[in-house]
Design a protein around this nucleic acid. Structure first.
Lengths: 346, 346
DNA sequence: TACATTTACGCAACCGATTGTGTTATTTTT
DNA sequence: AAAAATAACACAATCGGTTGCGTAAATGTA
């Protein structure tokens, strides 16, 4: 008698002198099984320490209880919240969550997608790697009836549900705020233009400049991976210009915070000489001194909605849909951009 | 002809006029299959877009390619690195990683453990919830031949592999450093004493005081959940004391940073009037002004080692082992504790 | 040439739960 | 009381690989 042999429905069936069918149905509250039997089965199951084998169930039903998630880096605060949101909904619905990081590499994204397919995930939630430009790997999943939902960093080049924020509006708001603060030469630290989020933010920035008749100066727009290091370098470059900017709108908080750090080191007063706005409201945004004005993201909610979309698609059978859900953002004004003699727009 | 029907080894077998057995073995490079056949099978598999069904394989082999992870909160920078380390090793070895958050709740930890068992994870890596005091749920897994490895927040009340840092030494080092900086009334912001990590840090703190003949003042030792909010309140309480401390050693960076924030607001000069040391080296530690002296954690490495232990246990068949691997930490000295006229110990 | 090995592959059971299709009693309907 | 409907359960196939055992052909050995 091996102590570590798992308890199966067959063990329960044998002990109760019924068929495995009955046990299975009883455990699932099938209505063709009497109340009496159901109770007995469940009691014995508990007593024997029975735990259903999800593997076997998945194989037979051709349907797993696992949702796959591919994101860039788990260590980003925004991503962590996103995942929590996904987990929240998924767990409620009885799903597990498999997470894999693309590390912003296209190759890893493809590999991860294949691995998740081998695990026959019930659905996939993906936030694209920085440089991804081909989407075949995702379309393959759809062809196998596995729903794909993009979140935050999405693709418009294939049919799929998308959960995003209004990056354009956010970029516009951020820039408009800087203009209201009296800034006239506003720089922008942007990210990969392959990604909707950075492109949208930049477009919003440009549109705001246009609206207020501020000339666009290409030398004030810098692209990078928006890391701390790059943000620092970009700030250095901008502030060494013969005609330096009086404000920076960065597409994320890391870049914005490191810009503040550079400015402080260079003895530039914030926000009076240089106003700065970031994006995401990472923890560092409220820690840096002066605290960083930034755009708040409903990350947790985005995760929840993405997961709900997966579940919805599973039900509706149609794996390909092209609904785009856009969530609102808020401008969170803090000292890094709040000039004393100016009034805040509301 | 359904386009979304999955390709199986049977499809390949039929087309090649061989048995599914041969296909299976060819795909796994079994040596009883000729080079020739193996090549043919693999080519057709590629051509047909075959992807192995890991579910079916797992069921038969009674062994999944999934490692389960239970941690408190994914949003903690330390945890994120830890997970990355686990993923690194796991993916290399062909494993997936299922992550679930206990949110520091014992009940959720138990539920998650059961769910992961239903998924028949190959192994479990766990960092205990704040208040967990019973470990039956983990022992049940071991009884089912599923290896359990604890990491960071571990249990000594059951046999299991453990991967930790030397919290005692770190706490000692941190406190000794403060003493070297001339501090005489050193407060401690501690966490749940049920957890080895907080207990160890506190013991190290006490030992350092003892070594340098500094009396222990119970009113300077405060316990909390070490959140920003609690850290702030604790700092307020300490600094309102008739005889306030001249240093704080906090068991994590959140508490330390919020203590700095309170001190700044209260007009207390750091580090001269109050020196502060944190723990973890979270991003906020280097962002806060003055930058926070803290203890660095080899989080990624801890994750890697934990995953390696799981793989090792799988091989060795014995699921219960009680090896404790202790990793080193470093004291990272920054301005929050560095008094100008003092020399740094090395 | 006769026998022993080796090579290359097939058969069929198996992993554990699910489900369409029966098959009995038992109850309801007319 | 006979026919119809319902309740409660069992049979056996199925999901897609994996694996112990068996076998025929090819090769090696004496």
């Amino acid at each position: 008698m091996k102590r570590n042999k798992e308890v199966t429905i067959y063990d329960i069936a044998k002990e109760l002198q019924v068929s495995p069918t009955t046990v299975s149905r009883a455990l699932n509250d099938h209505n063709s099984i009497s109340k009496e039997t159901t109770r007995t089965v469940k009691n014995l199951a508990r007593k024997l320490g029975y735990h259903p084998n999800a593997i076997a169930s998945s194989l037979r039903k051709n349907k797993t209880n696992t949702i796959g998630v591919i994101i860039s880096w788990i260590s980003r605060p925004f991503i962590a919240s996103l995942i929590s949101g996904i987990e929240d909904v998924a767990n409620q619905a009885g799903y597990n969550v498999i997470i894999s990081q693309s590390c912003d590499s296209y190759e890893r994204e493809v590999t991860n997608t294949k691995t998740l397919y081998s695990s026959r995930v019930a659905g996939l939630i993906a936030s694209l790697a920085m440089e991804t430009q081909k989407y075949d790997h995702f379309m393959q999943l759809q062809r196998k009836d596995i729903p794909v939902v993009f979140v935050d960093r999405v693709s418009y080049e294939m049919e799929a549900d998308r959960v995003i924020i209004d990056n354009f509006a956010a970029g516009f708001k951020a820039t408009e705020h800087l203009i209201a603060m009296g800034c006239q030469r506003i720089a922008h630290l942007g990210g990969s233009q392959y990604r909707n989020i950075y492109k949208g933010r930049q477009q919003g920035y440009l549109e705001a400049l246009k609206k207020y008749n501020i000339p666009i100066d290409e030398s004030l727009i810098l692209y990078s991976n928006l890391s701390m290091e790059e943000g620092y370098k970009c700030a250095e470059q901008l502030l060494s210009l013969p005609n330096p900017p009086d404000a920076i709108f960065a597409a994320n908080d890391s870049a914005a915070v490191s810009a503040i750090q550079y400015a402080k080191k260079a003895g530039i007063r914030i926000p009076d000489e240089l106003a700065i706005v970031g994006f995401n409201d990472d923890p560092i945004a409220s820690i840096i001194d002066p605290a960083l004005t930034t755009i708040t993201h409903p990350a947790f909610e985005m995760g929840r909605i993405a997961a709900l979309q997966v579940l919805k698609l599973k039900e509706s059978k149609s794996m390909v849909q092209s609904e785009t859900i856009v969530l609102k953002t808020d401008l969170l004004i803090r000292p890094s951009s709040l000039r004393k003699n100016k009034k805040v727009l509301t």
